[in-house]
Amino acid sequence: MDMAVSTLLFTLQDMGLAAVPAVGFAMVFNVPRGALLYCALGGALGHGLRLTLHRTVGMPIEWATLIAAFAVSLLGIYWARRWRAHPKVFTVAAMIPMIPGVYAFTALLAVIEIDRRGFSEELLNTAITNGLKALFIVSALAVGLALPGLLFYRRRPVV
């Protein structure tokens, strides 16, 4: 019971922390003011769902990301119809907390380090593992967002 409560609190804190970057980056993308709340909700739900699937269910991070992105995309379609706007207006900002930024930078910096310090297996290992993680997570995000269109809205537009 205690365990469940602490997991719940952890997840709620995680969702709250994910909502802020979703709104922050939505403002960089100049999302209309009325849609910022949806970005925050999507960011919180997506990140919280991924955390639960990854940590509690034990799913690999890439698959957890794919499912979270799919769920947010479905929500985005619902909002898009009410708001008469493309779902990406809401959903891409909501994906931002899940973007593998640290992996991407680590991979590129490791490649540069190979040039600076000379080749080592450790650096190559860092470059490839981080680079692949970044690549697969970004692909999972984009494919997850595209899935409703690929599965349900094949020959008709969402809005």
Partner: peptide, 18 residues
């Protein structure tokens, strides 16, 4: 590592894949 995350071009990356 966190302070440079504002330079990750998330939107172009997602747009590229989609």
């Amino acid at each position: 590592s966190a302070c440079v995350l504002l330079f990750v071009p998330g939107f172009p990356l997602i747009n590229a894949v989609s």
